[in-house]
Design a protein around this nucleic acid. Structure first.
Lengths: 248, 248
DNA sequence: TCCTCTCGTCTCATAATATGGGACTAGACA
DNA sequence: TGTCTAGTCCCATATTATGAGACGAGAGGA
Protein backbone atom coordinates (compact mmCIF):
# COMPACT_ATOMS: atom_id res chain seq x y z
CA UNK A 1 0.00 0.00 0.00
CA UNK A 2 1.25 3.39 -0.93
CA UNK A 3 2.71 5.32 1.95
CA UNK A 4 0.54 8.13 3.21
CA UNK A 5 0.52 10.21 6.33
CA UNK A 6 -2.99 9.14 7.23
CA UNK A 7 -3.15 5.76 5.49
CA UNK A 8 -5.47 7.35 2.91
CA UNK A 9 -7.86 5.31 0.87
CA UNK A 10 -6.01 3.42 -1.84
CA UNK A 11 -9.02 2.86 -4.05
CA UNK A 12 -10.01 6.53 -3.96
CA UNK A 13 -6.40 7.53 -4.64
CA UNK A 14 -6.33 5.25 -7.67
CA UNK A 15 -9.53 6.80 -8.96
CA UNK A 16 -8.03 10.25 -8.60
CA UNK A 17 -4.85 9.05 -10.33
CA UNK A 18 -6.99 8.02 -13.27
CA UNK A 19 -8.62 11.44 -13.46
CA UNK A 20 -5.27 13.19 -13.42
CA UNK A 21 -3.70 10.88 -15.99
CA UNK A 22 -6.63 11.45 -18.34
CA UNK A 23 -6.41 15.14 -17.50
CA UNK A 24 -3.01 15.11 -19.19
CA UNK A 25 -4.54 13.72 -22.39
CA UNK A 26 -7.04 11.10 -23.58
CA UNK A 27 -5.88 7.50 -23.01
CA UNK A 28 -6.87 3.98 -24.03
CA UNK A 29 -7.43 1.41 -21.27
CA UNK A 30 -4.12 -0.41 -21.60
CA UNK A 31 -2.15 2.80 -21.71
CA UNK A 32 -3.92 4.11 -18.64
CA UNK A 33 -3.24 0.87 -16.77
CA UNK A 34 0.42 0.94 -17.79
CA UNK A 35 0.89 4.56 -16.80
CA UNK A 36 -0.55 3.94 -13.34
CA UNK A 37 1.01 0.52 -12.75
CA UNK A 38 -2.41 -1.12 -12.36
CA UNK A 39 -3.89 -4.23 -13.95
CA UNK A 40 -6.33 -3.91 -16.82
CA UNK A 41 -9.29 -5.20 -14.82
CA UNK A 42 -8.72 -2.90 -11.86
CA UNK A 43 -8.29 0.05 -14.19
CA UNK A 44 -11.38 -0.92 -16.12
CA UNK A 45 -13.50 -1.18 -12.99
CA UNK A 46 -12.40 2.17 -11.61
CA UNK A 47 -12.64 3.91 -14.98
CA UNK A 48 -16.12 2.51 -15.57
CA UNK A 49 -17.21 3.84 -12.20
CA UNK A 50 -15.91 7.28 -13.16
CA UNK A 51 -17.67 7.11 -16.55
CA UNK A 52 -20.97 6.13 -14.91
CA UNK A 53 -20.81 9.17 -12.64
CA UNK A 54 -19.83 11.49 -15.49
CA UNK A 55 -16.27 12.23 -14.43
CA UNK A 56 -14.91 10.51 -17.56
CA UNK A 57 -16.30 9.91 -21.01
CA UNK A 58 -15.35 7.01 -23.23
CA UNK A 59 -15.94 5.95 -26.81
CA UNK A 60 -15.00 2.72 -28.61
CA UNK A 61 -11.34 2.91 -29.64
CA UNK A 62 -11.12 6.55 -28.66
CA UNK A 63 -10.31 5.75 -25.05
CA UNK A 64 -11.09 7.83 -21.98
CA UNK A 65 -11.40 11.57 -21.74
CA UNK A 66 -12.51 13.95 -18.99
CA UNK A 67 -16.27 14.15 -18.56
CA UNK A 68 -18.93 16.80 -18.00
CA UNK A 69 -19.16 16.36 -14.25
CA UNK A 70 -15.73 17.95 -13.94
CA UNK A 71 -16.99 21.04 -15.76
CA UNK A 72 -19.79 21.22 -13.24
CA UNK A 73 -17.60 20.71 -10.18
CA UNK A 74 -14.95 23.01 -11.59
CA UNK A 75 -17.44 25.82 -11.88
CA UNK A 76 -18.89 25.05 -8.44
CA UNK A 77 -15.37 25.19 -7.03
CA UNK A 78 -14.87 28.52 -8.81
CA UNK A 79 -18.07 29.83 -7.27
CA UNK A 80 -17.18 28.66 -3.77
CA UNK A 81 -13.85 30.38 -4.04
CA UNK A 82 -15.35 33.38 -5.77
CA UNK A 83 -18.02 33.99 -3.17
CA UNK A 84 -15.60 34.93 -0.42
CA UNK A 85 -13.25 36.77 -2.76
CA UNK A 86 -16.00 38.64 -4.57
CA UNK A 87 -17.80 39.49 -1.34
CA UNK A 88 -14.86 40.62 0.78
CA UNK A 89 -14.37 44.17 -0.56
CA UNK A 90 -18.11 44.78 -0.46
CA UNK A 91 -18.32 43.55 3.11
CA UNK A 92 -15.47 45.85 4.06
CA UNK A 93 -17.17 48.80 2.43
CA UNK A 94 -20.41 48.03 4.24
CA UNK A 95 -18.59 47.73 7.58
CA UNK A 96 -16.96 51.11 6.97
CA UNK A 97 -20.24 52.69 5.91
CA UNK A 98 -22.24 51.31 8.81
CA UNK A 99 -19.53 51.14 11.45
CA UNK A 100 -20.96 47.77 12.47
CA UNK A 101 -20.01 44.11 12.21
CA UNK A 102 -20.72 42.48 8.84
CA UNK A 103 -21.09 38.73 8.21
CA UNK A 104 -21.22 36.51 5.15
CA UNK A 105 -22.78 33.08 5.47
CA UNK A 106 -24.37 30.17 3.66
CA UNK A 107 -26.94 27.59 4.52
CA UNK A 108 -25.37 24.32 5.56
CA UNK A 109 -27.89 21.64 6.43
CA UNK A 110 -30.33 23.34 8.74
CA UNK A 111 -28.09 26.05 10.05
CA UNK A 112 -26.31 29.17 8.92
CA UNK A 113 -22.57 28.72 8.50
CA UNK A 114 -20.49 31.89 8.81
CA UNK A 115 -17.86 32.16 6.08
CA UNK A 116 -16.52 35.65 6.66
CA UNK A 117 -16.72 38.44 9.24
CA UNK A 118 -15.65 42.08 9.16
CA UNK A 119 -15.67 43.78 12.57
CA UNK A 120 -17.16 47.22 12.91
CA UNK A 121 -15.39 50.14 14.55
CA UNK A 122 -17.49 50.33 17.73
CA UNK A 123 -16.26 49.30 21.16
CA UNK A 124 -18.88 46.59 21.37
CA UNK A 125 -17.83 43.42 19.56
CA UNK A 126 -20.18 40.82 18.20
CA UNK A 127 -18.98 37.44 19.48
CA UNK A 128 -19.38 35.44 16.33
CA UNK A 129 -16.55 33.80 14.38
CA UNK A 130 -15.90 32.25 11.02
CA UNK A 131 -16.94 28.62 11.10
CA UNK A 132 -19.79 29.17 13.53
CA UNK A 133 -23.09 27.57 12.86
CA UNK A 134 -26.14 29.51 13.95
CA UNK A 135 -29.86 29.02 13.93
CA UNK A 136 -31.74 29.83 10.77
CA UNK A 137 -34.98 31.02 12.36
CA UNK A 138 -33.54 33.46 14.89
CA UNK A 139 -30.57 35.10 13.18
CA UNK A 140 -31.10 37.76 10.54
CA UNK A 141 -28.66 36.08 8.19
CA UNK A 142 -30.41 32.76 8.73
CA UNK A 143 -33.80 34.24 7.90
CA UNK A 144 -32.37 35.90 4.79
CA UNK A 145 -31.30 32.46 3.61
CA UNK A 146 -34.91 31.29 4.00
CA UNK A 147 -36.67 34.04 2.08
CA UNK A 148 -37.51 31.92 -0.94
CA UNK A 149 -39.07 29.26 1.24
CA UNK A 150 -42.74 28.84 2.03
CA UNK A 151 -44.76 28.78 5.24
CA UNK A 152 -44.68 25.00 5.35
CA UNK A 153 -40.89 24.74 5.32
CA UNK A 154 -40.63 27.63 7.74
CA UNK A 155 -42.93 25.88 10.21
CA UNK A 156 -40.87 22.72 9.94
CA UNK A 157 -37.71 24.64 10.78
CA UNK A 158 -39.35 26.42 13.70
CA UNK A 159 -40.36 23.05 15.08
CA UNK A 160 -36.93 21.56 14.47
CA UNK A 161 -35.18 24.45 16.20
CA UNK A 162 -37.61 24.41 19.09
CA UNK A 163 -38.09 28.10 18.66
CA UNK A 164 -39.59 29.97 21.57
CA UNK A 165 -42.05 32.78 21.14
CA UNK A 166 -45.08 33.53 19.04
CA UNK A 167 -44.84 31.49 15.87
CA UNK A 168 -47.78 33.22 14.22
CA UNK A 169 -46.06 36.58 14.64
CA UNK A 170 -42.79 35.08 13.38
CA UNK A 171 -44.44 33.76 10.21
CA UNK A 172 -46.13 37.12 9.63
CA UNK A 173 -42.81 38.94 9.90
CA UNK A 174 -41.18 36.42 7.51
CA UNK A 175 -43.86 37.08 4.90
CA UNK A 176 -43.07 40.78 5.24
CA UNK A 177 -39.35 40.08 4.93
CA UNK A 178 -39.93 37.94 1.84
CA UNK A 179 -41.84 40.81 0.25
CA UNK A 180 -39.16 43.32 1.21
CA UNK A 181 -36.13 41.23 0.25
CA UNK A 182 -34.38 41.59 3.60
CA UNK A 183 -34.66 40.16 7.12
CA UNK A 184 -34.21 41.44 10.67
CA UNK A 185 -33.12 39.93 13.93
CA UNK A 186 -34.98 41.86 16.63
CA UNK A 187 -32.94 40.53 19.56
CA UNK A 188 -34.35 37.06 18.93
CA UNK A 189 -31.02 35.29 18.70
CA UNK A 190 -29.21 37.24 21.36
CA UNK A 191 -30.34 39.82 23.89
CA UNK A 192 -29.56 43.40 22.96
CA UNK A 193 -28.20 42.44 19.52
CA UNK A 194 -30.07 43.44 16.38
CA UNK A 195 -29.30 42.68 12.81
CA UNK A 196 -30.21 43.57 9.21
CA UNK A 197 -29.62 40.92 6.55
CA UNK A 198 -30.19 40.29 2.84
CA UNK A 199 -29.81 37.28 0.53
CA UNK A 200 -27.22 36.96 -2.22
CA UNK A 201 -28.46 35.36 -5.43
CA UNK A 202 -26.42 33.50 -8.01
CA UNK A 203 -26.67 33.41 -11.80
CA UNK A 204 -29.73 31.17 -11.61
CA UNK A 205 -31.48 33.56 -9.22
CA UNK A 206 -31.30 31.13 -6.33
CA UNK A 207 -30.26 32.27 -2.87
CA UNK A 208 -26.69 31.08 -2.50
CA UNK A 209 -25.51 33.09 0.52
CA UNK A 210 -26.48 36.07 2.70
CA UNK A 211 -24.92 39.03 4.41
CA UNK A 212 -25.82 40.81 7.61
CA UNK A 213 -25.00 43.90 9.67
CA UNK A 214 -25.19 43.33 13.41
CA UNK A 215 -24.93 45.75 16.28
CA UNK A 216 -26.07 46.49 19.79
CA UNK A 217 -29.75 47.38 19.97
CA UNK A 218 -28.92 50.93 21.09
CA UNK A 219 -27.40 51.54 17.65
CA UNK A 220 -30.21 49.75 15.84
CA UNK A 221 -33.40 51.75 16.30
CA UNK A 222 -36.23 50.96 13.93
CA UNK A 223 -35.58 53.93 11.63
CA UNK A 224 -31.88 53.13 11.28
CA UNK A 225 -32.64 49.50 10.49
CA UNK A 226 -34.97 50.63 7.71
CA UNK A 227 -32.27 52.87 6.25
CA UNK A 228 -29.59 50.20 6.61
CA UNK A 229 -31.81 47.63 4.93
CA UNK A 230 -31.46 49.50 1.64
CA UNK A 231 -27.65 49.52 1.97
CA UNK A 232 -27.55 45.83 2.82
CA UNK A 233 -29.86 44.87 -0.08
CA UNK A 234 -27.72 46.94 -2.44
CA UNK A 235 -24.49 45.35 -1.22
CA UNK A 236 -26.01 41.86 -1.54
CA UNK A 237 -27.17 42.67 -5.07
CA UNK A 238 -23.72 43.94 -6.02
CA UNK A 239 -22.10 40.75 -4.75
CA UNK A 240 -24.73 38.72 -6.61
CA UNK A 241 -23.95 40.60 -9.81
CA UNK A 242 -20.33 39.64 -9.34
CA UNK A 243 -21.49 36.03 -9.30
CA UNK A 244 -23.52 36.39 -12.46
CA UNK A 245 -26.93 37.32 -11.06
CA UNK A 246 -29.18 39.67 -12.99
CA UNK A 247 -32.38 41.41 -11.97
CA UNK A 248 -34.79 40.79 -14.79
CA UNK B 1 -23.43 -2.10 -1.05
CA UNK B 2 -25.14 0.23 -3.42
CA UNK B 3 -26.59 -1.47 -6.46
CA UNK B 4 -24.64 -0.79 -9.60
CA UNK B 5 -24.77 -2.26 -13.07
CA UNK B 6 -21.11 -3.17 -13.00
CA UNK B 7 -20.50 -3.59 -9.26
CA UNK B 8 -18.59 -0.32 -9.34
CA UNK B 9 -16.13 0.56 -6.66
CA UNK B 10 -17.94 1.52 -3.47
CA UNK B 11 -15.02 3.41 -1.99
CA UNK B 12 -14.53 5.50 -5.12
CA UNK B 13 -18.28 6.12 -5.31
CA UNK B 14 -18.24 7.34 -1.72
CA UNK B 15 -15.38 9.68 -2.50
CA UNK B 16 -17.33 11.10 -5.44
CA UNK B 17 -20.42 11.42 -3.24
CA UNK B 18 -18.37 13.57 -0.89
CA UNK B 19 -17.25 15.82 -3.74
CA UNK B 20 -20.80 16.31 -4.94
CA UNK B 21 -22.21 16.91 -1.47
CA UNK B 22 -19.56 19.57 -0.85
CA UNK B 23 -20.25 20.89 -4.35
CA UNK B 24 -23.73 21.77 -3.10
CA UNK B 25 -22.23 23.86 -0.28
CA UNK B 26 -19.48 23.77 2.35
CA UNK B 27 -20.05 21.17 5.08
CA UNK B 28 -18.64 20.23 8.46
CA UNK B 29 -17.54 16.64 8.99
CA UNK B 30 -20.56 15.45 10.97
CA UNK B 31 -22.98 17.02 8.53
CA UNK B 32 -21.21 15.45 5.59
CA UNK B 33 -21.29 12.03 7.27
CA UNK B 34 -24.98 12.41 8.06
CA UNK B 35 -25.89 13.51 4.55
CA UNK B 36 -24.14 10.51 3.01
CA UNK B 37 -25.15 7.95 5.62
CA UNK B 38 -21.54 7.19 6.51
CA UNK B 39 -19.76 7.01 9.85
CA UNK B 40 -17.59 9.88 10.99
CA UNK B 41 -14.36 7.93 10.70
CA UNK B 42 -15.05 6.67 7.19
CA UNK B 43 -16.04 10.16 6.09
CA UNK B 44 -12.98 11.63 7.74
CA UNK B 45 -10.64 9.19 6.03
CA UNK B 46 -12.09 9.76 2.58
CA UNK B 47 -12.34 13.53 3.02
CA UNK B 48 -8.76 13.72 4.26
CA UNK B 49 -7.62 11.81 1.17
CA UNK B 50 -9.45 14.31 -1.03
CA UNK B 51 -7.93 17.26 0.88
CA UNK B 52 -4.42 15.82 0.52
CA UNK B 53 -4.85 15.61 -3.23
CA UNK B 54 -6.34 19.09 -3.50
CA UNK B 55 -9.89 18.12 -4.43
CA UNK B 56 -11.20 19.56 -1.16
CA UNK B 57 -9.99 22.27 1.17
CA UNK B 58 -10.67 22.39 4.87
CA UNK B 59 -10.18 24.84 7.70
CA UNK B 60 -10.80 24.44 11.42
CA UNK B 61 -14.51 24.94 12.14
CA UNK B 62 -15.17 26.09 8.57
CA UNK B 63 -15.62 22.54 7.30
CA UNK B 64 -14.90 21.21 3.83
CA UNK B 65 -15.08 23.10 0.59
CA UNK B 66 -14.16 22.31 -3.01
CA UNK B 67 -10.44 22.55 -3.70
CA UNK B 68 -8.16 23.94 -6.40
CA UNK B 69 -7.60 20.63 -8.16
CA UNK B 70 -11.18 20.76 -9.40
CA UNK B 71 -10.51 24.14 -11.01
CA UNK B 72 -7.59 22.57 -12.80
CA UNK B 73 -9.45 19.46 -13.94
CA UNK B 74 -12.48 21.53 -14.85
CA UNK B 75 -10.44 23.64 -17.20
CA UNK B 76 -8.65 20.58 -18.61
CA UNK B 77 -12.04 18.99 -19.23
CA UNK B 78 -13.14 22.19 -20.97
CA UNK B 79 -10.03 22.08 -23.14
CA UNK B 80 -10.46 18.43 -24.08
CA UNK B 81 -14.01 19.09 -25.12
CA UNK B 82 -13.09 22.37 -26.76
CA UNK B 83 -10.32 20.99 -28.93
CA UNK B 84 -12.56 18.81 -31.09
CA UNK B 85 -15.40 21.36 -31.13
CA UNK B 86 -13.16 24.32 -31.89
CA UNK B 87 -11.20 22.40 -34.51
CA UNK B 88 -14.06 20.75 -36.43
CA UNK B 89 -15.22 23.68 -38.58
CA UNK B 90 -11.62 24.55 -39.44
CA UNK B 91 -10.85 20.98 -40.38
CA UNK B 92 -13.91 20.93 -42.63
CA UNK B 93 -12.85 24.15 -44.32
CA UNK B 94 -9.35 22.79 -44.91
CA UNK B 95 -10.77 19.55 -46.35
CA UNK B 96 -12.94 21.56 -48.72
CA UNK B 97 -10.06 23.85 -49.71
CA UNK B 98 -7.59 21.04 -50.28
CA UNK B 99 -9.96 18.30 -51.42
CA UNK B 100 -7.92 15.90 -49.28
CA UNK B 101 -8.33 14.01 -45.99
CA UNK B 102 -7.75 16.05 -42.84
CA UNK B 103 -6.88 14.63 -39.40
CA UNK B 104 -6.73 16.00 -35.88
CA UNK B 105 -4.63 14.15 -33.33
CA UNK B 106 -2.85 14.35 -30.01
CA UNK B 107 0.15 12.69 -28.51
CA UNK B 108 -0.81 9.81 -26.26
CA UNK B 109 2.14 8.05 -24.68
CA UNK B 110 4.55 7.51 -27.56
CA UNK B 111 2.06 7.48 -30.37
CA UNK B 112 -0.26 9.80 -32.22
CA UNK B 113 -3.93 9.28 -31.32
CA UNK B 114 -6.37 10.37 -34.00
CA UNK B 115 -9.28 12.32 -32.53
CA UNK B 116 -11.07 13.49 -35.66
CA UNK B 117 -11.04 12.88 -39.41
CA UNK B 118 -12.64 14.73 -42.31
CA UNK B 119 -12.54 12.80 -45.61
CA UNK B 120 -11.55 14.59 -48.78
CA UNK B 121 -13.55 14.50 -52.00
CA UNK B 122 -11.20 12.31 -54.04
CA UNK B 123 -11.90 8.71 -55.00
CA UNK B 124 -8.90 7.54 -53.03
CA UNK B 125 -9.64 7.14 -49.31
CA UNK B 126 -7.06 7.29 -46.54
CA UNK B 127 -7.61 4.23 -44.37
CA UNK B 128 -7.22 5.84 -41.00
CA UNK B 129 -9.94 6.14 -38.39
CA UNK B 130 -10.72 7.96 -35.17
CA UNK B 131 -9.18 6.08 -32.27
CA UNK B 132 -6.22 4.87 -34.30
CA UNK B 133 -2.78 5.13 -32.83
CA UNK B 134 0.05 5.78 -35.27
CA UNK B 135 3.78 6.15 -35.10
CA UNK B 136 5.17 9.53 -34.16
CA UNK B 137 8.34 9.41 -36.25
CA UNK B 138 6.82 8.36 -39.59
CA UNK B 139 3.47 10.17 -39.79
CA UNK B 140 3.32 13.85 -40.59
CA UNK B 141 0.95 14.48 -37.71
CA UNK B 142 3.26 12.54 -35.41
CA UNK B 143 6.28 14.62 -36.43
CA UNK B 144 4.28 17.83 -35.99
CA UNK B 145 3.64 16.78 -32.39
CA UNK B 146 7.41 16.45 -31.91
CA UNK B 147 8.52 19.81 -33.26
CA UNK B 148 9.37 21.33 -29.88
CA UNK B 149 11.55 18.35 -29.00
CA UNK B 150 15.30 18.09 -29.38
CA UNK B 151 17.62 15.74 -31.23
CA UNK B 152 18.11 13.60 -28.16
CA UNK B 153 14.41 12.90 -27.62
CA UNK B 154 13.95 12.37 -31.35
CA UNK B 155 16.74 9.77 -31.42
CA UNK B 156 15.18 7.98 -28.47
CA UNK B 157 11.85 7.78 -30.28
CA UNK B 158 13.50 6.57 -33.50
CA UNK B 159 15.16 3.79 -31.52
CA UNK B 160 11.94 2.93 -29.67
CA UNK B 161 9.95 2.75 -32.90
CA UNK B 162 12.61 0.71 -34.65
CA UNK B 163 12.51 3.16 -37.51
CA UNK B 164 13.96 2.00 -40.82
CA UNK B 165 15.98 4.22 -43.14
CA UNK B 166 18.61 6.88 -42.80
CA UNK B 167 18.34 8.38 -39.32
CA UNK B 168 20.81 11.18 -40.07
CA UNK B 169 18.64 12.32 -42.97
CA UNK B 170 15.53 12.03 -40.77
CA UNK B 171 17.04 14.22 -38.06
CA UNK B 172 18.13 16.76 -40.69
CA UNK B 173 14.60 16.95 -42.08
CA UNK B 174 13.18 17.32 -38.55
CA UNK B 175 15.45 20.30 -37.88
CA UNK B 176 14.14 21.86 -41.06
CA UNK B 177 10.55 21.14 -40.05
CA UNK B 178 11.12 22.63 -36.60
CA UNK B 179 12.41 25.81 -38.26
CA UNK B 180 9.49 25.91 -40.68
CA UNK B 181 6.74 25.09 -38.19
CA UNK B 182 5.28 22.21 -40.20
CA UNK B 183 6.15 18.57 -40.97
CA UNK B 184 5.85 16.24 -43.97
CA UNK B 185 5.33 12.52 -44.43
CA UNK B 186 7.14 11.65 -47.64
CA UNK B 187 5.64 8.15 -48.00
CA UNK B 188 7.48 7.04 -44.86
CA UNK B 189 4.46 5.75 -43.01
CA UNK B 190 2.63 4.26 -45.98
CA UNK B 191 3.63 3.76 -49.58
CA UNK B 192 2.22 6.30 -52.02
CA UNK B 193 0.70 8.42 -49.25
CA UNK B 194 2.06 11.88 -48.48
CA UNK B 195 1.06 14.28 -45.81
CA UNK B 196 1.46 17.90 -44.64
CA UNK B 197 1.01 18.59 -40.93
CA UNK B 198 1.31 21.44 -38.41
CA UNK B 199 1.15 21.67 -34.63
CA UNK B 200 -1.65 23.36 -32.63
CA UNK B 201 -0.49 25.34 -29.62
CA UNK B 202 -2.49 26.15 -26.49
CA UNK B 203 -2.61 29.28 -24.35
CA UNK B 204 0.77 28.44 -22.83
CA UNK B 205 2.36 28.05 -26.27
CA UNK B 206 2.85 24.32 -25.82
CA UNK B 207 2.00 21.89 -28.61
CA UNK B 208 -1.28 20.35 -27.56
CA UNK B 209 -2.45 18.71 -30.81
CA UNK B 210 -1.72 18.66 -34.53
CA UNK B 211 -3.54 18.58 -37.83
CA UNK B 212 -2.60 17.03 -41.14
CA UNK B 213 -3.68 16.84 -44.79
CA UNK B 214 -3.02 13.46 -46.38
CA UNK B 215 -3.34 12.33 -49.97
CA UNK B 216 -1.99 9.99 -52.60
CA UNK B 217 1.53 10.93 -53.72
CA UNK B 218 0.27 11.76 -57.21
CA UNK B 219 -1.65 14.69 -55.73
CA UNK B 220 1.19 15.71 -53.48
CA UNK B 221 4.06 16.93 -55.63
CA UNK B 222 6.72 18.97 -53.86
CA UNK B 223 5.40 22.33 -55.00
CA UNK B 224 1.84 21.58 -53.88
CA UNK B 225 3.11 20.43 -50.49
CA UNK B 226 4.93 23.72 -50.07
CA UNK B 227 1.77 25.68 -50.91
CA UNK B 228 -0.41 23.48 -48.70
CA UNK B 229 1.99 23.88 -45.79
CA UNK B 230 1.03 27.55 -45.52
CA UNK B 231 -2.69 26.66 -45.44
CA UNK B 232 -2.14 23.96 -42.83
CA UNK B 233 -0.02 26.23 -40.61
CA UNK B 234 -2.66 28.95 -40.85
CA UNK B 235 -5.49 26.55 -39.97
CA UNK B 236 -3.49 25.20 -37.00
CA UNK B 237 -2.83 28.77 -35.82
CA UNK B 238 -6.52 29.64 -36.09
CA UNK B 239 -7.50 26.60 -34.04
CA UNK B 240 -4.80 27.49 -31.50
CA UNK B 241 -6.17 31.02 -31.24
CA UNK B 242 -9.54 29.50 -30.44
CA UNK B 243 -7.83 27.72 -27.54
CA UNK B 244 -6.21 30.86 -26.24
CA UNK B 245 -2.85 30.78 -28.03
CA UNK B 246 -1.21 34.04 -29.08
CA UNK B 247 1.76 34.71 -31.30
CA UNK B 248 3.96 37.11 -29.39
C1' DT C 1 -15.13 -15.42 -46.28
C1' DC C 2 -12.03 -16.65 -42.74
C1' DC C 3 -8.33 -15.73 -39.66
C1' DT C 4 -5.84 -12.60 -36.79
C1' DC C 5 -5.34 -8.81 -33.87
C1' DT C 6 -6.64 -5.14 -30.69
C1' DC C 7 -9.49 -3.33 -27.29
C1' DG C 8 -12.80 -3.71 -23.90
C1' DT C 9 -15.76 -6.85 -20.74
C1' DC C 10 -16.54 -9.97 -17.18
C1' DT C 11 -16.06 -13.78 -13.50
C1' DC C 12 -14.87 -15.30 -8.92
C1' DA C 13 -11.39 -17.39 -5.54
C1' DT C 14 -8.42 -15.01 -2.90
C1' DA C 15 -5.81 -11.22 -1.02
C1' DA C 16 -6.00 -7.03 0.78
C1' DT C 17 -8.18 -2.96 2.15
C1' DA C 18 -11.86 -0.34 4.32
C1' DT C 19 -14.72 -0.01 8.09
C1' DG C 20 -16.53 2.02 12.29
C1' DG C 21 -16.98 2.16 17.46
C1' DG C 22 -15.45 5.05 20.36
C1' DA C 23 -11.48 6.88 23.00
C1' DC C 24 -8.81 10.81 22.64
C1' DT C 25 -7.09 15.68 21.62
C1' DA C 26 -7.42 20.57 20.57
C1' DG C 27 -9.54 24.78 20.86
C1' DA C 28 -13.05 27.92 22.38
C1' DC C 29 -16.31 29.73 25.70
C1' DA C 30 -18.87 30.51 30.18
C1' DT D 1 -11.44 25.22 35.40
C1' DG D 2 -14.97 22.57 33.40
C1' DT D 3 -17.77 21.76 29.43
C1' DC D 4 -18.73 21.35 24.74
C1' DT D 5 -17.87 20.85 19.80
C1' DA D 6 -15.21 19.37 16.07
C1' DG D 7 -11.71 16.71 14.34
C1' DT D 8 -8.14 12.77 14.91
C1' DC D 9 -6.70 8.21 15.39
C1' DC D 10 -6.43 3.08 16.56
C1' DC D 11 -7.10 -1.72 15.36
C1' DA D 12 -10.04 -6.11 15.44
C1' DT D 13 -13.12 -7.41 12.17
C1' DA D 14 -16.02 -7.21 8.18
C1' DT D 15 -16.21 -6.44 3.69
C1' DT D 16 -14.61 -5.02 -0.60
C1' DA D 17 -11.19 -4.84 -4.25
C1' DT D 18 -8.14 -7.36 -6.77
C1' DG D 19 -6.31 -9.50 -10.89
C1' DA D 20 -5.47 -13.62 -13.95
C1' DG D 21 -7.08 -14.61 -17.87
C1' DA D 22 -11.01 -16.32 -20.70
C1' DC D 23 -14.17 -14.25 -23.66
C1' DG D 24 -16.61 -11.16 -27.06
C1' DA D 25 -16.88 -7.38 -30.44
C1' DG D 26 -15.23 -5.08 -34.22
C1' DA D 27 -12.00 -4.12 -37.84
C1' DG D 28 -8.61 -5.25 -41.31
C1' DG D 29 -5.85 -8.27 -44.36
C1' DA D 30 -5.14 -12.38 -47.14
Amino acid sequence: MEASTTGGSQTLLRGLDILEAVGRGPLLLDALAAELGLTKSTTHRLATTLVERGYLSSAPRAGYRLGPRLLDLGSRAQRQIDLIQVARPHLEALATLSGDTVHLGVRSDDSALYLDKIPGNRRIEISSRVGDRHALTTTGLGKALLLDGDARSWKALLAAEGAKGDRTAWLERMRGYADAGHAFDLEENEDRIRCVAAPIRDASGAITAAISVSSAAQYMKDDRMAALAADVRRTAATIGAGLGWHVD
